[in-house]
């Protein structure tokens, strides 16, 4: 169970990206985070694994306060939280298999990193994850030789390598075409269904939200403006979330 309590983030310039946000996510839920660009979705997701340090508030995960974790504890927390990014964030010049193996770094001993060495079991596991997302044949290609959809699958395989209990997906399909978007979302759905991994996924398209999400939270200018089931988003709620001038399409 993930509990966000009164989470606030104020950036150095004084911009309030998150304003007293509170909500709970039960284990195994597929939660969609929606809102306009700049509404604080990315900041919220990055506060959960402390890529961004929250200014105030608590994030409790299975009773442990992430905001108070020491660097040593943070390493153990992070390795259980996979992350998928809008721009995939692969290391372009490295091989696909190396990118996937990087997901194990939270487990491996840093000293072995100096000689770029992973245990055999990890390498086998990496191949298995690549098979799962359907690009095992690309294992020895350079990451930047892959198309966008393939790169995002590598990103998912990397997250899976962590044996995650939770996956944070920051607009995972925003730079992909609709067909690819669905295939990537299906992978996330599968991980959520068959592995029981909690998924927090920020999304732009409501049809994707309706199709995949169990529950929705919506942010507007850093404030939580909606929390509930996808089908509860009616025209009035929609205008609350996206502003007066927004029009529903599709």
């Amino acid at each position: 169970m993930l509990q966000i309590k009164n989470l606030t983030k104020i950036y150095d310039g004084g911009v309030k990206a998150l304003d007293n946000v509170s909500f709970d996510v039960p284990d195994g839920q597929f939660l969609a985070v929606i809102g306009l660009s700049g509404s604080g979705k990315s900041t919220l997701l990055r506060c959960i694994n402390r890529l961004i340090e929250p200014t105030d508030g608590q994030i409790l995960w299975n009773g442990e306060d992430i905001t108070k974790a020491t660097p040593e504890e943070m390493r153990r927390i992070r390795r259980k939280i996979g992350m998928v990014f809008q721009h995939f964030n692969l290391v372009h010049r490295s091989k696909v298999i190396t990118n996937v193996l990087a997901g194990r770094l939270g487990y491996t001993n840093p000293a072995w990193g100096l000689v770029n060495r992973f245990p055999k079991s990890d390498i086998e596991k990496a191949i298995k994850q690549l098979e799962r997302v359907g690009i095992a044949d690309k294992a020895n290609h350079r990451a930047d030789e892959l198309s966008g959809g393939q790169q995002q699958r590598v990103g998912i395989a990397r997250a899976l390598m962590q044996d995650p209990e939770m996956i944070l997906a920051d607009e995972p399909v925003a730079s992909l075409d609709p067909v690819l978007a669905h295939s990537i979302m299906k992978h996330l759905e599968d991980i959520n269904d068959s592995d029981g991994v909690t998924v927090l996924c920020s999304l732009h398209f409501l049809d994707l939200v309706h199709r995949y999400a169990d529950r929705v939270v919506a942010l507007n200018q850093g404030q939580l403006v909606f929390e509930g089931l996808p089908k509860e988003i009616d025209d009035k709620k929609f205008k609350d979330i996206y502003g007066r001038d927004a029009e529903r399409v599709g």
Partner: peptide
């Protein structure tokens, strides 16, 4: 981006440099 992604896996500073910066 890659720096952020590698940090998110729980890699420590040395590992982040080796796997995200060096390549």
């Amino acid at each position: 981006g890659p720096l952020e992604a590698i940090t998110a896996t729980g890699a420590n500073r040395l590992q982040t440099i080796i796997y995200a910066v060096v390549p």
